[in-house]
Structures are given as C-alpha cells and as structure tokens.
Write a protein that binds this DNA or RNA. Structure first.
Length: 583
RNA sequence: GGGCCCGUGGCCUAGCCAGGAUUAAGGCACCGGCCUUCGGAGCCGGAGGUCCCGGGUUCAAAUCCCGGCGGGCCCGCCA
C-alpha cells in the first residue's frame, strides 16, 4: 500500500500526459490529461501516416520465411491455405517492422510422393488435363488414384496370403481396409473415369509397383534421363499452385527445387560433413546422426528450443537403396537459405505434425558445426485443419481445395454486391479472399481448425468484410468532408464517451503492433482491429460527423475518422487483407 | 505405452505466458427495437456461463502447480 503511494508520488513528478496519480489500496489510478494526450496521438497519426504503429524490433534484420512449400502432387488444400495465409502475415509484419525479408517456396520434387505421381503419369502416357481443369487439380487426382490403387493391390496380395493361411481376424481387417480404399477410388473415378480404368489395367500387370516407384525416385535423385517426366509433371502442378497463390494475393520471391539442390552437390557435401561428425552413427545398417550427447546438455537444448520431454530418435540420412531422406536434404536447404540471403534468421512455417523432424534438423545443423544456423532456425508451428468428421488426405484425394473455397466465396460475395454501387473487376475476389484469410488469422495458430464450408459460406459470418466495410465507411466520410482542418481541431472536446475510447484505441495501436510483431500472433491484431471497428461504428451511429456545427469539434471528429482509417488500413494490410476504398 | 498441443454460454473465438479494477469480452444463432440525416455488410437493447473435472498455492485463480477426463498431433529407410 505504501509502495503504491510512493509510486504515485514519483509518477506525479514526471510529465507523462498525467493529470494525477492516486493510489487506491493495491491499485494505482492514473488520470490522463486527455486533451494533451489526444493531441499527441492524433498528430502522430497525421505525421507518420502509414508508418504510424511501425515497430522497430526487426529493424535491419535479414530474414528468410519459407512457407506453403506444399508438395507438388495436388492442389493447395485448406491446410496449406492456413500455412499460406500465416506465412504471408509473417512476411508482411516483419517487413513492416523494418526487416529485409525474403519469401521462399521449397518444391519437394525428390520425395516419394512425387515419384508416385510421376509413376502414374508415365503409366498413363503423360496425359494433359482436360479443358477447363487446372493442372494441379487434374494431377492431384492422378496422384491419389496411383497411391490408392497401389495400396489396394498390396492389400489384396496380403489378403490372398492370409486367406489361405486361415487368419480370419486379419482377413476381416484387410477386407475392411480394401473396401474403404475402393470407395475412395470410386469417388476419384467419378471425375476421371477413363484414367482410372487405364491405371488399374496398367498397374495390375506390374509385379511390384511399389518397388518400381522407389526405383523411379532413386533414378530421379540420380538425374537419370528416364525420370524426366517426374520434373515435367511436378512443374505443371507447381504452375497450378502458383495460380492459386496469385488469387490469394500471395507472391513468392524464390522457388527452390529440391532436385536442383541435389544437383548442386550441396546434399553430398552435407553427407560428407555428417560422416566426419562425432555424432555420426550407423543405425539399422544405414548412415545416421544420433543426438544423445547433445540432448544431455540442458543449455543447448534450450538454445535449440528442443521441447523438454521430447525423445529424439536418430536421424537416418540415407535409405538402403542410396537415396536421401527429406530431412537430410533439408539440412542442405537450410544452409542455402542462410547463405544466399545472408540471413540472420530463417523462419519455417510448417505444421505442428513436423515438430520432431524440425527438431532433428536443428540438432543436425548443430552436430555438423553450424551452431549459429541451428540457433537461428525457427519452426513457426500451426495446428492442423480438419474437415467436420474427418481429416484430410492428399493420398486419398480427400480434401477441400483453396480454389473451390475461394470460388464459392467469390460467387457468394457477388450475390451480395448485386444492387450496390459495386465496381466490377476483381473486387468480389478481394473481399472473398480477405474473408478466407480472416478465418485463418482470427484463431490462434495453436488451435486445431475444423473447417466447415457451410459456415465459411454463411453470409452473416463474413467478419473479414466487416473490417473492409468499416474502412470504406470512414473513407467515404472523409471524401465527402474534404481536407481535415488540423489547425482548428479542438482537442479539449476529446474526453467523453466513444471519442475518448477511440482515441485511446488509436493510441494503443503502436504497442499492439510491437507485441504482434515480436510474438507473430496475428489473432491479437485481428481482435484489436475489431475493437476499433466496433467503437468507430458505434460512434458513427451516435454522433454526426459532417453535420457537426462547431468547427473545432468537426475538425476533431474528422481527425479521429482519419486516424481510424489509417489504423485499420495499416492493420489490415499487415494481415494481408485487401484494403478497399469502396466495397 | 511415452511426448507435445487444445478444452471459456447452443456454436466459434479473445483473455492464460507477466494472478487483482472486466460485473469473464467479441462474433454467429435466438428475442425485441432503429432506414426523411454522413455507406443498414451497420447500430441499440434482451436472454443465455459449473471458464472440462478434482485437489493445491495465494489476501486474491479462467489465469500458477499437481492429478484426472475429453479431443488433435507425433513417436517411419513418408513428408
């Protein structure tokens, strides 16, 4: 209690827009000189404009953000959509905060998944998509069909064996699994019936398709000519993905192909480094790194942000057939990202399910002598996006694509815009994609998202457009008003009701932004902008702005409106929502 | 089995890390109002809560600690 009184005394002595400070029990009550504070806030917004609220915490840093990086085997689904939207937010907030930022997409064309697609593609005689179907959608179906058929054939083989051996329990289980896959396949077949028949026909004549896929993968990694179609089909899928990102308003600076990385010799170099490392081992007969020694050091664990209870198995570097594994290549790729951009920090936006390999990656970097890179590699995690009832699966063709969500939302927005003073063009898309991004940004990344398309398309739940609408409303008032007469603003009229609250919120914006920038939590900014929009709309309804008779008060109201517009505009553009003067 | 994450009115989401002055906040859905005035994609009012459960720490717990329960994810020569 005495401490509070003492503090009050001290604070009173300093001049921080404070009228008075009183202690009340354990609390300190601050009384702000509202006219002075308001003047400071509003003129700051006026002078700094779009720079108002710019945090300085990343000033001068060089940062690489890797995001999306979906495998080139199917279209972007809404899980990748969450990744894309979050990654883009990170790019924007870092850039706004003064960092040099580079956006990279890692095309994993060397892995097993692309080999499956390439295999099906070759078996079908390298078909082109039918007219009107995007390549990523078409080849996504081929990919799902190929993996599903191969799995069915494999299970059937086992079923035959188990039947003759009389293992009834296993027979039932296998039959059930096969039925499930058959129904997945039937669903795919509705879209590409001819291809499915051709694939079934071709694959059922192959003795062991799985090992052929593996062989194709090995050849591709080795740069064998026979495997060229793999790159070809992956490129077509990537082109489709690029289009989807474009319609989301998301661009990349660099597209890195994993196969190029291998051809550059960087992966070989990593393998040589690994063999010389103290942590090198043979695990089950193949080269690996083991981290037991490193994990015993609590200080290092902390530096590398290895979750406390996490058990880290050895990292296998090379398969028995000589091909490398994803994380092995990712070691080389991480070094490439650091070097090519001379980066202080590399942020990987990757789903939480990859926590373990990302931790292994940091440990491996450290083990190979790249301590700085290991410590400066951030895994920005986000939780999964599931569909009501099920989870998505690329291998089975069970997913909701970003394209179809955007398309449906755009149509919906167009309906709503009918009869309004809507200008044509891509405005409906801009509103729709902002609504989509808003959904992805408003929930904490640490929460699982259940994506319900019906809810996404519910007109009344389009909260992204609410911000756009409020911005357009403020803009409209200002356009009608002409210039804000800053010299005549009456700052003494700032202390009541909603004006006071609005100025308070506007003044809070810089501290909100620096918290958001340091923690990279988009949801905090989303909620703040909602507060601003709510306060502005309530105020707008209560107090006429343009019709205000008192010149000084009118100028004040316009200054507040202009500041709200600036804050909303800056906040929305950092989130990646389209800022529209009219909607 | 082990590890990590999540659990807040019917549904969704803030607040939790840095415990107090928020009477637990906002949106959807629900009920009732507001278009002769600056953009009704809006505003005002109402109803609706065991902050998953149980202990503990504290003057004070949605918030911290321990133990449960429910859901998601991981524990591959997949990524």
């Amino acid at each position: 209690m005495e401490l509070a009184a003492k503090l009050a005394e001290d604070l009173r002595a300093k001049d921080l827009f404070l009228k008075d400070v009183k202690s009340a029990g354990v609390y300190l009550n601050f009384f702000v000189k509202y006219p002075d504070y308001s003047k400071k806030v509003l003129t700051s917004v006026k002078e700094l404009g779009e720079g108002y609220g710019r945090p300085v915490i990343w000033e001068g840093k060089r940062i690489v953000v890797e995001y999306v990086s979906a495998n080139p085997v199917h279209p972007l689904h809404i899980g990748s959509g969450r990744n894309a939207v979050l990654g883009d937010f990170i790019y924007r907030i870092l850039k706004f905060s003064g960092a040099e930022v580079q956006r990279r997409y890692y095309v994993d064309d060397v892995g097993l998944q692309v080999a499956y697609l390439g295999y099906g593609y070759i078996k079908l005689g390298k078909p082109n998509p039918p007219a009107g179907m995007k390549p990523d959608h078409y080849y996504g179906l081929i990919y799902a069909a190929t993996t599903t058929i191969i799995d069915i054939l494999k299970l059937k083989k086992e079923l035959d064996v188990k039947k003759s051996s009389g293992n009834n329990e296993r027979v039932l289980e296998l039959s059930r699994q096969i039925d499930e896959l058959m129904s997945d396949l039937a669903r795919i077949k509705e879209k590409i019936p001819e291809e499915i028949d051709a694939l079934l026909n071709a694959l059922s004549r192959v003795e062991d398709p799985e090992s052929e896929v593996n062989e194709l993968m090995r050849k591709y990694e080795a740069g064998d000519k026979d495997s060229e179609p793999v790159r070809e089909v992956a490129s077509k899928v990537v082109e489709g993905i690029r289009k989807t990102l474009e319609s989301l308003g998301i661009e990349m600076d660099v597209w890195d192909w994993e196969s190029d990385l291998i051809r550059s010799g960087m992966v070989d170099k990593v393998l040589r480094e690994a063999r010389e490392s103290l942590h090198f081992t043979e695990h089950k007969g193949v080269p690996a790194l083991q981290f037991e020694g490193l994990l015993k050091d609590p200080a290092l664990r902390k530096k590398l942000r290895i979750p406390e209870g996490l058990d880290i198995p050895p990292l296998i570097l090379v398969r028995k057939n000589g091909s490398t594994l994803y994380t092995t290549r990712d070691i080389a790729y991480t070094l490439k990202k650091f070097r090519e951009f001379d980066a202080d920090l590399v942020i990987n936006v990757i789903a939480v399910e990859q926590t373990l390999p990302q931790a292994q990656l940091r440990l491996a970097l450290h083990a190979l002598g790249h301590a700085r890179e290991a410590e400066s590699l951030i895994h920005y995690k986000y939780e999964m996006v599931n569909l009501p009832g099920t989870s998505m699966s690329g291998r089975r063709g069970r997913y909701v694509t970003v394209d179809e969500v955007l398309e449906k939302m755009t149509t919906l927005v167009q309906e709503l815009m009918k009869g309004k003073k809507s200008e044509a063009g891509d405005k409906a898309l801009k509103i729709a994609r902002s609504a989509f991004k808003y959904m992805m940004l408003s929930a904490s990344p640490s929460k699982t998202l259940v994506f319900d398309l019906r809810k996404a398309l519910d007109t009344n739940q389009l909260s992204g457009p609410y911000l756009q609408y409020t911005y357009a409303r403020a803009n409209s008032v200002l356009e009608k008003a002409g210039e804000v007469e800053w010299d005549t603003v009456d700052f003494s009229a700032t202390s009541q009701g909603l004006r006071r609250r609005l100025i308070w919120l506007i003044g809070k914006f810089p501290s909100v932004m620096s918290k958001v920038a340091s923690e990279l939590h988009p949801e905090d900014l989303v909620h703040f902008l909602n507060e601003v929009a709510d306060a502005f709309n309530a105020w707008y309804d209560k107090e006429p702005i343009l019709k205000e008779g008192d010149r000084g008060v009118r100028a004040l109201k316009l200054a507040i409106t202009a500041s709200v517009k600036t804050v909303l505009g800056t906040g929305m553009s950092v989130l990646g929502l389209d800022v529209l003067r009219r909607i």
